[in-house]
Computed example of a mutant assay.
Amino acid sequence: METVAALVVTYNRLADLKKCLDTLRQQTRPLDAIFVVNNGSTDGTAEWLATQPGLAVTTQANLGGAGGFATGIDTAYRAGHTWVWCMDDDCLAAPDALAALLASPNLGPCIKNSMSVSVNSREELAFFVDRPHRAYRKVSDMTGVDLVYDVASFFNGTLVHADVIKTIGIPDKNLFIWGDEVEYMTRAQKNGFPIVTVPSSVFYHPASFDRDGIPWPAAWKQYYAVRNQRRVLQNQYGNTVGRLLFASWAAKATIKQATATRANRLYNFLLYGEATLDSLTNNFRKRPDTIRTLQFYNWRHK
């Protein structure tokens, strides 16, 4: 008998977490287990979770989304579940979201993603997707078909089969945030597992935004998006070609930051350069408080 475990990773968003868990408890196809990984929240999350029945809770230091999903997927997989349904704490699942995923065409071991719809506009996707011959912006771009191949918004209603986990392992916690989900997706593709979005399964999520335009000091997160891109390209094109493609892309992106007219371009330039150098020297140890550009920014803005 197939079993499905939900996995929610949370960090300092207790109000969102409560709403997310409510939608999981209301699924028309009841879940067999709900795992929650608390990434060291300081907003009362741990205390509230301790009062909740029916949850398997792991509390750890803040290891970012990558570390949270690495812990959670490993825990659910070791518990013997057939499928692990992964999501951030700001996701809201439609009542039949899980039932629709399970009722969609059988692809064997695979990854099936719910369609992520913006909470602000039910006609717009939460995450825009560009493919060589098709752009996905509206809900209508995905509806009308059973499956949309090679499109998925990890980890927002992402249903992963145990055989996929057995083959490709768990997310790399060293990636911390931003890019870890794409690296995991391309790792699955590299190993030949189908990845699809199921439009009949709906998740609601805050809309994505232009990461390059995030104001400082929050723009430090872009460090990880740049640094982790090398791993994505190497999954797609092999180690040597992927590394060369990353070096070329990162150099152009760094120069673009230096010549942009946007505010804080100095810090953006330094951040991109630091991320590029760290990636090429295989330095994946940095956490937010050790990013030198962020330290420099904070020193100048005491």
Rank of each mutant, 00 (worst) to 15 (best):
G238Y: 04
A251T: 11
R243Q: 14
F284P: 00
L277Q: 06
I255N: 01
L280V: 07
K256I: 00
Q234Y: 02
R262F: 10
A247D: 13
E274C: 04
E274N: 05
R262D: 13
F269A: 11
T281K: 02
L280G: 11
Q236W: 04
F246G: 08
I255W: 10
T254G: 01
G242E: 08
N264V: 04
A250L: 03
K252F: 08
L277P: 00
T254V: 02
N268L: 08
N283K: 02
N282I: 00
N239F: 13
K252R: 12
Q236S: 00
R265W: 07
G238K: 05
K252E: 08
Y267A: 04
A251S: 13
V241C: 08
R265L: 06
L271V: 05
V241N: 10
A275F: 07
A263E: 15
T240M: 12
Q257P: 08
T254F: 02
K256V: 00
T281F: 03
L244T: 06
A251E: 14
V232T: 14
T276Y: 01
G238T: 04
T254D: 01
V232L: 01
Y267W: 15
T261W: 06
N283T: 09
L277Y: 04
A251F: 10
R265I: 05
Q234F: 01
L245E: 06
R231K: 13
S279T: 04
K252Y: 04
